[in-house]
Design a protein around this nucleic acid. Structure first.
Length: 224
DNA sequence: AATTTGAACAACCGCGACGCC
DNA sequence: GGGCGTCGCGGTTGTTCAAAT
Protein backbone atom coordinates (compact mmCIF):
# COMPACT_ATOMS: atom_id res chain seq x y z
CA UNK A 1 0.00 0.00 0.00
CA UNK A 2 1.42 3.36 -0.98
CA UNK A 3 1.50 6.67 0.75
CA UNK A 4 -1.76 8.56 0.85
CA UNK A 5 -1.62 11.35 -1.67
CA UNK A 6 -1.74 14.88 -0.36
CA UNK A 7 -4.03 16.58 -2.82
CA UNK A 8 -6.49 14.04 -4.19
CA UNK A 9 -9.36 14.96 -1.90
CA UNK A 10 -12.42 15.70 -3.93
CA UNK A 11 -13.44 19.34 -3.66
CA UNK A 12 -10.03 20.67 -2.61
CA UNK A 13 -9.43 23.96 -4.38
CA UNK A 14 -6.55 24.36 -6.83
CA UNK A 15 -5.27 27.18 -8.98
CA UNK A 16 -4.61 30.85 -8.25
CA UNK A 17 -5.04 32.12 -4.72
CA UNK A 18 -7.58 34.83 -3.91
CA UNK A 19 -6.72 37.82 -1.66
CA UNK A 20 -9.10 36.39 0.96
CA UNK A 21 -7.26 33.06 1.02
CA UNK A 22 -3.93 34.88 1.26
CA UNK A 23 -5.22 36.90 4.19
CA UNK A 24 -6.43 33.79 6.03
CA UNK A 25 -3.12 32.01 5.50
CA UNK A 26 -0.96 34.94 6.58
CA UNK A 27 -3.05 35.68 9.65
CA UNK A 28 -3.03 32.04 10.71
CA UNK A 29 0.72 31.54 10.27
CA UNK A 30 1.65 34.82 11.95
CA UNK A 31 -0.48 33.81 14.93
CA UNK A 32 0.18 30.05 15.09
CA UNK A 33 3.23 29.28 12.98
CA UNK A 34 3.37 26.33 10.59
CA UNK A 35 4.36 23.23 12.53
CA UNK A 36 2.21 20.89 10.46
CA UNK A 37 1.36 21.83 6.88
CA UNK A 38 -0.91 18.82 6.56
CA UNK A 39 -3.32 20.07 9.21
CA UNK A 40 -2.80 23.78 8.66
CA UNK A 41 -5.44 24.36 5.94
CA UNK A 42 -8.24 22.87 8.05
CA UNK A 43 -7.21 24.86 11.13
CA UNK A 44 -6.89 28.05 9.10
CA UNK A 45 -10.27 27.54 7.43
CA UNK A 46 -8.83 27.05 3.96
CA UNK A 47 -10.09 24.62 1.34
CA UNK A 48 -6.55 23.89 0.09
CA UNK A 49 -4.05 21.11 0.55
CA UNK A 50 -1.10 21.62 2.88
CA UNK A 51 1.37 21.50 0.05
CA UNK A 52 -0.35 24.33 -1.76
CA UNK A 53 -0.39 26.42 1.45
CA UNK A 54 3.28 25.79 2.07
CA UNK A 55 4.20 26.80 -1.47
CA UNK A 56 2.09 29.93 -1.37
CA UNK A 57 3.64 31.00 1.93
CA UNK A 58 7.24 30.23 0.94
CA UNK A 59 7.09 31.68 -2.55
CA UNK A 60 4.76 34.62 -2.14
CA UNK A 61 3.45 35.52 1.29
CA UNK A 62 6.48 35.27 3.57
CA UNK A 63 7.16 38.76 4.96
CA UNK A 64 10.90 38.67 4.19
CA UNK A 65 10.45 38.10 0.46
CA UNK A 66 12.20 40.59 -1.77
CA UNK A 67 10.13 41.63 -4.78
CA UNK A 68 11.20 43.22 -8.03
CA UNK A 69 13.92 42.75 -10.59
CA UNK A 70 17.13 40.90 -9.94
CA UNK A 71 20.13 43.20 -9.67
CA UNK A 72 23.32 42.73 -11.68
CA UNK A 73 25.06 41.54 -8.49
CA UNK A 74 22.34 38.97 -7.83
CA UNK A 75 22.60 37.72 -11.43
CA UNK A 76 26.34 37.24 -11.11
CA UNK A 77 25.91 35.46 -7.79
CA UNK A 78 23.31 33.09 -9.24
CA UNK A 79 25.56 32.27 -12.18
CA UNK A 80 28.51 31.71 -9.87
CA UNK A 81 26.52 29.54 -7.47
CA UNK A 82 24.97 27.57 -10.31
CA UNK A 83 28.44 26.78 -11.64
CA UNK A 84 29.31 25.37 -8.20
CA UNK A 85 26.02 23.76 -7.17
CA UNK A 86 24.16 23.00 -10.40
CA UNK A 87 20.34 22.96 -10.27
CA UNK A 88 20.28 23.01 -6.46
CA UNK A 89 17.83 25.91 -6.40
CA UNK A 90 17.10 25.77 -2.71
CA UNK A 91 20.82 25.82 -1.89
CA UNK A 92 21.27 28.81 -4.22
CA UNK A 93 18.23 30.55 -2.71
CA UNK A 94 19.66 30.19 0.80
CA UNK A 95 22.55 32.39 -0.30
CA UNK A 96 20.35 35.10 -1.83
CA UNK A 97 18.51 36.91 0.92
CA UNK A 98 14.81 37.39 0.21
CA UNK A 99 14.73 35.32 -2.99
CA UNK A 100 12.94 31.97 -3.30
CA UNK A 101 14.13 28.84 -5.03
CA UNK A 102 11.15 28.99 -7.39
CA UNK A 103 11.90 32.59 -8.32
CA UNK A 104 15.56 31.84 -8.98
CA UNK A 105 14.69 28.73 -10.98
CA UNK A 106 12.25 30.70 -13.14
CA UNK A 107 14.73 33.52 -13.62
CA UNK A 108 17.43 31.09 -14.60
CA UNK A 109 15.22 29.31 -17.13
CA UNK A 110 13.81 32.47 -18.73
CA UNK A 111 16.76 34.90 -18.58
CA UNK A 112 20.13 33.66 -17.44
CA UNK A 113 20.29 30.49 -19.51
CA UNK A 114 19.69 32.44 -22.71
CA UNK A 115 22.08 35.18 -21.67
CA UNK A 116 24.90 32.68 -21.15
CA UNK A 117 24.16 30.90 -24.42
CA UNK A 118 24.24 34.17 -26.33
CA UNK A 119 27.61 34.90 -24.76
CA UNK A 120 28.88 31.57 -26.04
CA UNK A 121 28.85 29.90 -22.63
CA UNK A 122 27.28 26.53 -22.02
CA UNK A 123 24.73 27.07 -19.19
CA UNK A 124 25.23 23.56 -17.83
CA UNK A 125 29.04 23.33 -17.83
CA UNK A 126 29.70 27.11 -17.59
CA UNK A 127 32.47 26.66 -20.12
CA UNK A 128 32.98 28.61 -23.31
CA UNK A 129 31.62 26.62 -26.21
CA UNK A 130 33.84 25.80 -29.18
CA UNK A 131 32.73 26.77 -32.69
CA UNK A 132 31.59 23.22 -33.36
CA UNK A 133 29.55 23.17 -30.16
CA UNK A 134 27.89 26.39 -31.21
CA UNK A 135 27.23 25.17 -34.74
CA UNK A 136 25.68 22.00 -33.43
CA UNK A 137 23.27 24.01 -31.33
CA UNK A 138 22.26 26.54 -34.01
CA UNK A 139 18.76 25.12 -34.55
CA UNK A 140 18.09 25.22 -30.82
CA UNK A 141 19.54 28.70 -30.53
CA UNK A 142 17.41 29.96 -33.37
CA UNK A 143 14.26 28.28 -32.12
CA UNK A 144 14.87 29.42 -28.54
CA UNK A 145 15.45 32.99 -29.55
CA UNK A 146 12.32 35.11 -29.78
CA UNK A 147 14.12 37.94 -31.46
CA UNK A 148 14.81 37.51 -35.11
CA UNK A 149 13.75 39.91 -37.80
CA UNK A 150 14.72 38.84 -41.28
CA UNK A 151 13.43 40.94 -44.12
CA UNK A 152 15.48 39.17 -46.74
CA UNK A 153 15.96 35.61 -45.64
CA UNK A 154 17.94 34.50 -48.69
CA UNK A 155 20.54 37.25 -48.33
CA UNK A 156 21.04 36.39 -44.70
CA UNK A 157 21.15 32.70 -45.44
CA UNK A 158 23.86 33.39 -48.00
CA UNK A 159 25.85 35.52 -45.57
CA UNK A 160 25.51 32.97 -42.82
CA UNK A 161 26.51 30.11 -45.11
CA UNK A 162 29.57 32.09 -46.25
CA UNK A 163 30.61 32.51 -42.64
CA UNK A 164 30.00 28.85 -41.98
CA UNK A 165 32.10 27.76 -44.95
CA UNK A 166 34.89 30.04 -43.80
CA UNK A 167 34.59 28.71 -40.30
CA UNK A 168 34.47 25.05 -41.31
CA UNK A 169 37.49 25.42 -43.59
CA UNK A 170 39.63 26.85 -40.80
CA UNK A 171 41.16 24.21 -38.55
CA UNK A 172 41.17 26.49 -35.53
CA UNK A 173 39.44 25.12 -32.47
CA UNK A 174 39.21 28.52 -30.78
CA UNK A 175 35.96 30.48 -31.11
CA UNK A 176 35.63 32.53 -34.26
CA UNK A 177 34.71 35.99 -33.03
CA UNK A 178 33.30 37.25 -36.34
CA UNK A 179 31.03 34.28 -36.55
CA UNK A 180 29.87 34.70 -32.97
CA UNK A 181 29.10 38.35 -33.65
CA UNK A 182 27.16 37.34 -36.71
CA UNK A 183 25.09 34.90 -34.69
CA UNK A 184 24.57 37.61 -32.12
CA UNK A 185 23.20 39.86 -34.85
CA UNK A 186 20.67 37.20 -35.79
CA UNK A 187 19.58 36.61 -32.29
CA UNK A 188 19.31 40.21 -31.19
CA UNK A 189 17.27 41.39 -34.15
CA UNK A 190 13.50 41.57 -33.88
CA UNK A 191 11.09 38.68 -33.89
CA UNK A 192 10.08 36.72 -36.97
CA UNK A 193 8.85 33.20 -36.15
CA UNK A 194 8.61 32.17 -39.80
CA UNK A 195 12.27 33.04 -40.37
CA UNK A 196 13.23 31.19 -37.22
CA UNK A 197 11.51 28.08 -38.46
CA UNK A 198 13.10 28.38 -41.90
CA UNK A 199 16.54 28.91 -40.44
CA UNK A 200 16.16 26.07 -38.00
CA UNK A 201 15.23 23.62 -40.75
CA UNK A 202 17.98 24.92 -43.03
CA UNK A 203 20.63 24.32 -40.41
CA UNK A 204 19.39 21.00 -39.06
CA UNK A 205 21.48 18.92 -41.53
CA UNK A 206 24.52 21.10 -40.82
CA UNK A 207 23.95 20.65 -37.13
CA UNK A 208 23.84 16.85 -37.56
CA UNK A 209 27.13 17.02 -39.46
CA UNK A 210 28.69 19.01 -36.63
CA UNK A 211 27.38 16.58 -34.04
CA UNK A 212 29.03 13.68 -35.88
CA UNK A 213 32.25 15.70 -36.28
CA UNK A 214 32.20 16.44 -32.59
CA UNK A 215 31.63 12.84 -31.55
CA UNK A 216 34.32 11.51 -33.89
CA UNK A 217 36.78 14.08 -32.57
CA UNK A 218 35.86 13.09 -29.00
CA UNK A 219 36.42 9.42 -29.87
CA UNK A 220 39.83 10.25 -31.34
CA UNK A 221 40.75 12.17 -28.20
CA UNK A 222 39.74 9.29 -25.97
CA UNK A 223 41.89 6.86 -28.01
CA UNK A 224 44.98 9.04 -27.68
C1' DA B 1 -9.59 46.24 -33.27
C1' DA B 2 -9.07 41.39 -33.03
C1' DT B 3 -6.17 37.60 -32.91
C1' DT B 4 -1.91 35.22 -32.19
C1' DT B 5 2.38 34.47 -30.05
C1' DG B 6 5.61 34.03 -26.55
C1' DA B 7 7.86 35.58 -22.18
C1' DA B 8 7.33 35.59 -17.37
C1' DC B 9 6.12 33.61 -13.36
C1' DA B 10 2.73 31.27 -10.26
C1' DA B 11 1.29 26.88 -9.04
C1' DC B 12 1.12 21.86 -9.38
C1' DC B 13 2.98 17.15 -9.32
C1' DG B 14 5.87 13.26 -8.35
C1' DC B 15 9.39 11.48 -5.80
C1' DG B 16 13.16 10.99 -2.50
C1' DA B 17 14.63 11.99 2.22
C1' DC B 18 13.78 11.95 6.80
C1' DG B 19 11.83 11.09 11.28
C1' DC B 20 8.71 8.66 14.17
C1' DC B 21 6.47 4.62 15.87
C1' DG C 1 14.22 -2.89 10.21
C1' DG C 2 10.30 -1.46 7.87
C1' DG C 3 5.91 0.93 7.26
C1' DC C 4 3.86 5.26 7.30
C1' DG C 5 3.28 10.33 7.33
C1' DT C 6 5.20 14.63 6.22
C1' DC C 7 8.32 17.83 4.21
C1' DG C 8 11.08 19.82 0.70
C1' DC C 9 13.00 19.83 -3.83
C1' DG C 10 13.25 20.06 -8.81
C1' DG C 11 10.86 19.50 -13.08
C1' DT C 12 6.82 20.65 -15.47
C1' DT C 13 2.49 22.77 -16.56
C1' DG C 14 -0.91 26.48 -16.50
C1' DT C 15 -2.14 31.27 -16.56
C1' DT C 16 -1.60 35.99 -17.51
C1' DC C 17 -0.48 39.76 -20.15
C1' DA C 18 2.09 42.58 -23.38
C1' DA C 19 3.90 42.82 -27.95
C1' DA C 20 3.54 41.57 -32.63
C1' DT C 21 0.86 40.62 -36.59
Amino acid sequence: MGRSPCCDDFGIKKGPWTPEEDKKLVEYILKNGHDNWRHLPKNAGLNRCGKSCRLRWINYLRPDIKRGKFTEDEEQLIIQLHSLLGNKWSAIARRLKGRTDNEIKNYWNTHLKKKLMLNGIDPMTHRRRSDLDILASIPNLITASANINVSNLNTLRYQLLQSLVQLMSSSSSTPNINFLEFLGFFIHSKSCPHARFELASTFQPLSNLCQSKLSSSNTRNRCK
